[in-house]
Every structure is written in structure tokens, then in C-alpha cells.
Nucleic acid binder design. Sequence first.
DNA 1: AAAACGGGGAT
DNA 2: ATCCCAGTTTT
Length: 348
Amino acid sequence: MSFSDDLVQWYQSNKRQLPWRDTHDAYVIWLSEIILQQTRVEQGLPYFYSFLEKYPDVSSFAAASEDDILKLWQGLGYYSRGRNMLKTARMVQADYGGIFPEAYDQLIKLKGIGEYTASAISSFAANEPKAVVDGNVYRVLARYFGINEPINSPKGIKIFQSAANELLDKHRPGIHNQAMMEFGAMLCRPKNPACNICPVSEGCYAFANNAVNLLPVKLNKIKIRERYFNYFLVADEHTLVMNRRGDKDIWANMYDLPLIETDTLLPPDGLLALPQLKALFGDDIKIDEIFPVIKHVLTHQRLFVRFIKLQHHHIELKEQWFITDRNNLKKLALPKVIFIFLKNIFNL
DNA sequence: AAAACGGGGAT
DNA sequence: ATCCCAGTTTT
């Protein structure tokens, strides 16, 4: 019995039942793989269902608008995944007649599909012998073979890909890949791995050398930027002023409120200089209510978000601002922190 | 080669 | 708090 055989055997009797397993539809597999990038299965599952229901095939996906896709993606994060999916769906519709490709060399050219995802789709859908290397596989390989090269160094990435390629069972690459990942997710976990019931502990370097908690090695302490967002609620009975975000910063092409970003800690009294507000909104405004600062944590940024309700009779709309009915909010893709605020304010 | 890109769960 | 999740793109 080889390492792969042992894992596959374990996989077949211990795998979770997941809706994207046991299909060979490349479109469905693609949908699941993009959703699951940097996302836990439990978090992605409801999105997978809603996307599949609304867009049962690539043609219907390609016909959607970016606003539609981002709205359905709302809350999942890494929104470029959604925007790239739309580009890819349209490319598949135009260049492949709506037939989702299954070949690695074609997949790798599509937006949002990198080495991992191209390997996953091609091996799951068509049994193409491409080895996946995701976070699970890095961990399994590092521990089992005692590889101490950092998993996120350029050298490490090549070493792990080579190791995965060598290990791949060319006769059943799809199930081999799934078994590697499921094993990493369920037994060979980052913390408290289940070495006591591990089917391959006997040949495991880390288990034999008491190095399970030392591997894999990862470097790069990401640095976190602090930002201070002052959002302004300009609303009447039925409508409010919204802002369409640009395509560079976080939450690209999504919708929030008129914003003043400051580069220092917010003043304790919560007051921005009134002249600054008048310069932005016009003279006819007054601060109505200042809400407590909300700390919103992202991977690379810590946001200190403060909402300020303004009284107004007339305001001047800036370039990316527009007035919309409250009822239209259900159609706009909102960042989590904006969504929560508006939901609470308007009892949505 | 680094940095950027969300949000949430486990420890 | 820290890590990391079925990673990819941009700088």
C-alpha cells in the first residue's frame, strides 16, 4: 500500500458529503472551487447553493450583471473572485460556446483560475493528472516528508509542487487530490491534528520526530494598516445618498456611503471640522447624530468606522454619489459593515 | 518578490 | 490576539 492508496482508502470511508463531489460538471466544480478559495467549506456552502440556483449554467452566469454577481457574493469577501468569475463566464460563453473547459492548459488562461484551481477542475472533471497544492496539501506534505522550506517562499512553492506531482496517483488523480485535501482538513489539521487515528502516521516524519507542531514553516508576518472611515448618512423618509466605490481599493465597485477618510485617530469628541463637512456637502448641513466607532478587521487593514447622521435640506452630489430609495438597497452589494449599519438603522 | 484582497471560526 | 481557510492578481 502506498501513501496515496492509504489516503484514498481513508477518504472513501470518511469523506464529508459535499454537493460538488461526485459531479463531473466543470461549471459546477469551478463554482465551488472559486467560492472555496481562502474560504472554509461551511462558510462557502450557502453561497454555492444560491449561486447554483440562480445561475445553473455558465450561460446564465455570463448573462448576469456585475452588480448582480457582487450582490450575491455579498458577505463572502475577496470580491475580485466574483468579478473575475463574470469575466471568465463571459469568456467561456464567447470563446467556448458556453461549454466550460476541462483542460488545464485552457483553464489556466481564465481570470481567477490559477495553478491550484486549474489542477482541481481538470483533475476532478476529466481526471487530468495535475496535482493540487492548497493549504491542506502544503501542511500534509511538510509534515509527512519533513519539508522545512517555508511554504510561501518561491523556493518552497516549487519544492511542494514537485513533491505533490511525484506523489500524484496518475491512475486516479481526481480522487487522489480530493483525498489529500480532505485528509488535511479533517485529520492533519493546523492545530490538534488527529495523529492517533491517522492512517499514515507510521511513515510520517513529523510524527516520528515530534515535529507536528513545527511544520509547516511559514514566514511573512503581514503588516496591518489602520484606517479611519467617517461615513455620512444623508437620508430622508424614503431615500438616502449612496456612493459607488472605485475599482482600486477594498470593496471595488461595491456601494457604501459618502466617506471622509482621515489619517489619524478620531478625535474623542467625534467631531470633524464643520468647514470640511460644508466643503463636501454644501453649507446647508448640520450634524445630527454620531454613532460609536466600530472596529472592522480585515486581513490587511483595521478599519475604525464611524457613522454620522447629517441634517440637511439640500446637498450637492459628488461624482460617485447618487440618491436611491431604501427599497433599492436590496439590490446593491454592500460591504459587511455598511450592510449591518443600514439594516439596523432602517430595520431592513 | 511582496503586497493586496474579506470575513469568520478555532484556539 | 493569532492563525488560516479547496488562492489569485497586482504592484
